[in-house]
Nucleic acid binder design. Structure first.
Lengths: 238, 238
DNA sequence: CAGTGGTCTAGACCACAAT
DNA sequence: TTGTGGTCTAGACCACTGG
């Protein structure tokens, strides 16, 4: 967090969160913000663009930038956000139990079908997330080099913090998929399911240089699963 | 589709789709694109920014803009895209049967809990989507003014095309939620389900002036449900 | 009409990658 | 060192909103 546009965006986001700017109100105009922050209009516009992508504001031509009703502060799970980050943001009564933390022996068929080399090496981390005393999610992560040096302690805390703060790697983007599938016996047991279906999310995450660094397979107890998303209509079609 | 940045973005997107620029290759540099399109660098950068948000490219400092592996062309369902648009893009063997097209009598509790007036008026449209002869999705839409004049014919074809092309309204953004719930008897029957769970997606869609114009509740046959998403890590935290 | 955001330009300097 | 994208500036004109 160092350049001007991110500083401005963070400052505005904080002021929105703290209700200094409330839902339905307009932010100061771009010209006013330009003076407030002592910068150029384009820089202010870049900052507002970040807030727009996050779904915090909507810009209306001829009027201004209006603060949107973000239930998103209370129940977000879209974007690339780690379980630990969500946990902190939402104040969940959640705990993490590390079940495995060992070298990868093999990777799931799904990822092979999506172009990942079946002999990929790295670290396998399996964790059980318990929310309000209910076993709710099993996260199976395959961390690939350059993500190395993972210990059980790191896996208990936050992989993303380790990757970004300690390894100084820049997480950029991910492809995700959500399906509903019959649970295996192992999953049924670990989640103590009383019916046959489980929600499965699979994702492939990449660094800014497009290096694949993480494969994730998560199994969610259906009645505990909720995915929320903010999406914008894209102006370009193909 | 009229301003320069969208023209450039569309042109590049088309060239990526047609493999003129292949996955893993770099686009021409920003300076080259500036000359190619006879415009300024900032305009080119705005165009590339659109492609970046779509997940078509990744920009790497010091190197260039690389074309990403977009399975997204083959199985996209994120963003705000209508069933009809998906159908056309993917060439699905899908059909739509309009079950209802009438004034709204009441709206689901979920939307009331999310701040929608329970006495809202408008048009209720219920449609059954059949894919490969299997009844797969029930879409229940509540269209609010200024979206009026909906007929069964429009509902059979494309609501979004009607809203954007005929009514000239600008669709901006939506909040979506995905959960898994016990199916009601009515849903079980209409989707011919042989087990008790159904995937439910609920969304509230807005115009550029932040007017709420559409509520949607969709029920998906679990084994036919697949949600795919491209997400970027956001630089700002709160 | 004045004020807003949307688009576009022409430049500048920086950090980074490759040679 | 050269070329790349990242950041930032100062200005211009447009389209839209409101009084």
């Amino acid at each position: 967090m160092k350049n001007k546009q991110e500083l401005i965006a963070s400052d505005l986001a904080q002021k929105i969160r703290s209700k200094m700017y409330s839902v339905g109100e307009f932010l100061p105009s771009e010209n006013q913000l330009t003076e407030l922050y002592g910068t150029s209009r384009e820089t202010v516009r870049n900052a507002l663009s970040l807030l727009t992508q996050l779904g915090l504001i909507q810009k209306i031509k001829g009027k201004g930038s209006i603060v949107l009703n973000s239930d998103r502060f209370s129940l977000p799970i879209s974007g690339i956000v780690s379980f630990q980050e969500l946990n902190e943001q939402l104040g969940l009564h959640a705990s993490t139990k590390v079940i495995s933390c060992e070298p990868i022996s093999s990777i799931p068929q799904y990822f092979i079908e999506h172009g990942v080399d079946e002999n990929t090496t790295g670290t396998y981390v399996e964790r059980l997330r318990t929310i309000d005393q209910v076993p709710s999610v099993i996260d199976c992560d395959y961390l690939l080099p350059p993500v190395t040096g993972i210990t059980k302690e790191i896996a208990e805390h936050s992989l993303y913090q380790y990757i970004e703060d300690t390894l100084k790697l820049k997480i950029a983007y991910a492809n995700k998929e959500i399906t509903v599938e019959p649970a295996t016996e192992k999953i049924k047991e670990e989640l103590q399911l009383d019916q046959p279906l489980v929600v499965v999310t699979r994702s492939m995450s990449f660094l800014q240089d497009t290096t694949l660094f993480q494969l994730t397979e998560s199994y969610h107890r259906p009645e505990k699963f909720k995915f929320t998303d903010f999406a914008r209509r894209n102006p370009i079609q193909f």
